[in-house]
Amino acid sequence: MKKTKPLAPGSTIGILGGGQLGRMMAMAAAQMGYRCITYSPEKEIVAADVCADTFQNAWDDRAAMAAFAQNCDVVTWEFENVPVDAISQLGDLLAPHPRALETAQDRLNEKRFVEGLGGRAAPYAPVDNRADLASAVERIGAPGILKTRGDGYDGKGQWRIRSAHEVDGVSLPAGPAIYEGLVEFDAEFSVILARGRGGEIVFWDSTHNIHEDGMLARSVLPAPAIVAAQVDEARDLSRQVADALGYVGVLTLEFFATAQGPVFNEMAPRVHNSGHWTIEGAVTSQFQNHVRAILGLPLGDTRTVAPAMVMHNIVGKDAKTAHASLSDPATQLHLYGKARALDGRKMGHTTTLKFD
């Protein structure tokens, strides 16, 4: 980062990306007296509703990126597919360091990086052609999942292979891919941490994450006993990852809870869907602590404020009836301001705190 001391109220945070994560980040920043501007090439930029300015330009528009940078005291991102080459001109303004993006944007490099720190991943093999895929399925077994090495999220860029007989019929992605064997697990969970400029780290409680069609549907606390038993080991690995990256901000690692212990799934160098519950459910939300970290401010208390909680994603046309959830006075509703309620599109979420 360019600054060595905390940035004063009134400073400007630049957010790369214009989705709901940037929207909630900007809302947290405004609460503390900071302004945000966003940069995104997307047609619909929901973060713009709560940002002081918006740059709706292509990632490779160097003049626009330079103008954006001139208006920022620090720059962060809200999704991990920001092209690293396009933001190289931002230099010391960036937090976290772009090495986190470089690591997370390639599933093969990400797994090798985490394994190098002692983590366990699902069995995998790189796939560049059909012969590689056939060899990987023969060695690892099926069923398994063929994934693009980059750009995939929420189940996109993934193809399930149920048996070796399906290899010849699979349409290979245009770019490099990776084949992963399926993991037998009892639950999925994530470790979400915030790391400050001085290396201090705080963790939120780990939720039980329930997925449907490759997308997170619900995050629940308290998590099952097997998750609670494996959180410490998963946190130790997550801390090593954050330290190795010299990370600043909120970092998320997803895990499978298995009979052999936690198995690393993937990393998200950003605030995360499974941490949305922290807005109401923790003393300090993931969004506020991300802002605190990149500004050089002290990190906030991450304790959970209720004995139980469920966060539920609102997807597609369910947004049209989402206000019915408010019939439960313990439920908080967040709609992201998206105009098109497309199938499989995250439109909002609810969080329900339970005190009895």
Rank of each mutant, 00 (worst) to 15 (best):
P262N: 03
F189S: 03
A58C: 05
L335Y: 03
K43G: 15
A63G: 12
T278P: 09
V127G: 10
T148E: 11
H272L: 11
Y39W: 06
R235H: 00
V50W: 11
A63R: 12
Q105H: 03
M27K: 12
P123R: 11
K346P: 00
R149Q: 08
P269V: 09
E188L: 09
W77S: 05
T331K: 06
N273Y: 00
G141H: 11
S40K: 03
L93I: 09
Y124E: 15
K147T: 09
G181Q: 06
G214Q: 07
D60I: 11
A229F: 02
A319N: 10
P6K: 03
E188A: 11
L172Y: 05
F68G: 01
R197K: 13
R99M: 11
V75H: 04
A26M: 02
D186S: 15
V183M: 08
D49T: 14
G169N: 12
A339N: 11
I161R: 05
E180N: 08
F264G: 06
T103Q: 14
D60M: 15
G281L: 03
R23A: 04
A319G: 07
A29T: 13
D60H: 15
Y153A: 05
V46M: 13
A104L: 10
A174C: 13
K2Q: 11
K147R: 11
V271I: 11
N313I: 07
F287P: 10
L108R: 14
K346D: 00
L251F: 08
A29V: 08
E42M: 15
R23Q: 07
L7F: 04
M311L: 06
G196E: 05
A164N: 14
K354V: 15
I201M: 07
S163N: 10
R99A: 13
F355I: 08
A341E: 06
V183H: 09
G214I: 06
T258C: 06
R195V: 07
V250K: 06
M27E: 14
V283F: 06
G199V: 05
Y247W: 09
